[in-house]
Design a protein around this nucleic acid. Structure first.
Length: 273
DNA sequence: CGGTGGACCTGCTGGC
DNA sequence: TGCCAGCAGGTCCACC
């Protein structure tokens, strides 16, 4: 479900309401998400105060004032919301943190592809979850030459390359698809057959599509919301993702769908080569 | 080393 | 109306 823009929207929406809050109590209702939950380490967050909210790729990083970090990944179906502690647990609410504000930060995840774990003080860079993650595409904006360099020893289709978190983080199926449309590149084109100009267009398209999606509150296809429960609006701006058979917004040709590595790709056969 | 395909889960939808 | 195949925003690992 959530790619970089959704996690960034979530981070910003939770930041104001979580900073300075103390964790009063930790509630665990599941043994594992995509990996076992470390009950002892999670429970031991009780008493700590939240000092910062960060993000690395698709991981939300909740920093505590003693240096520990609570890392949360939403997988495909995860949601993280803040609501009054008195409200009953919601379906698939596997993990929750009661705060001194009288609210509860709730992690729901029907498919349990997400993750939640505690990173000890000072070891964020060493943690195996983050060790091999690639470059953040925003901040210092991604450049075409850099994409070309990252792909230099690779083969295979450009869409798989874009979605490979060891190269560039945060770009999933929706935003890889949309960036390729904006850059005019077919998702099944091999990285070996992409020239400098196309890499430049692609780098710019990735940055633009991610930034626009953040501005528009993320993409809500089914159930994404920010920390307050508000849906995003970028789904209105999707040019081709999920639009098989519809008219290309640029040339009105029918959008095609193909399957690559088991994932759907959508593209315009006229605008993308 | 790099790339692919399957596994991990539950829930919803669309076609019959 | 009801059932079920197919599909879903991600990641990891075994295998070639």
């Amino acid at each position: 479900m959530p790619e970089l823009p959704e996690i960034e929207v979530l981070r910003r929406s939770l930041e104001r309401r979580l900073l300075g809050r103390r964790v009063v109590r930790v509630r665990l209702r599941a043994l594992a998400l995509r990996e076992p939950l470390d009950r002892r380490a999670l429970r031991a967050l009780g008493g700590a105060r939240i000092s910062a909210l960060g993000r690395r790729g698709k991981y939300l990083l909740i920093a505590l004032d003693d240096g520990r970090t609570l890392a949360v990944h939403l997988g495909m179906s995860g949601r993280l919301t803040l609501s009054p502690a008195a409200a009953a647990p919601e379906p698939h609410e596997h993990l929750a943190f009661e705060l001194d504000s009288g609210e509860r930060l709730r992690l729901r995840d029907p498919r349990r592809f997400g993750a939640a774990f505690v990173v000890p003080a000072g070891s964020l860079d060493d943690d195996a979850h983050f060790a091999h993650l690639g470059r953040e595409p925003l901040g210092e904006p991604l450049a075409g030459a850099e994409l070309a360099r990252l792909a230099a020893r690779g083969r295979g289709p450009v869409k798989s390359f874009l979605m490979d978190g060891r190269r560039v983080v945060g770009v999933g199926n929706i935003y890889a698809t949309e960036a390729l449309f904006r850059a005019g590149i077919r998702p099944d084109r091999g990285v070996r057959r992409i020239g400098a100009a196309a890499w430049e267009r692609l780098a710019r398209a990735v940055v633009e599509v991610l930034e626009q999606a953040i501005r528009e509150g993320g993409t809500t296809l089914n159930d994404f919301t920010d920390g307050a429960g508000a849906p995003g609006e970028f789904q209105i701006s999707l040019a081709v993702y999920g639009r098989e058979g519809e008219a290309c917004p640029r040339c009105a040709r029918r959008v095609r769908r193909i399957v690559q590595s088991g994932r759907s790709s959508y593209f315009c056969p006229r605008c993308q080569r």
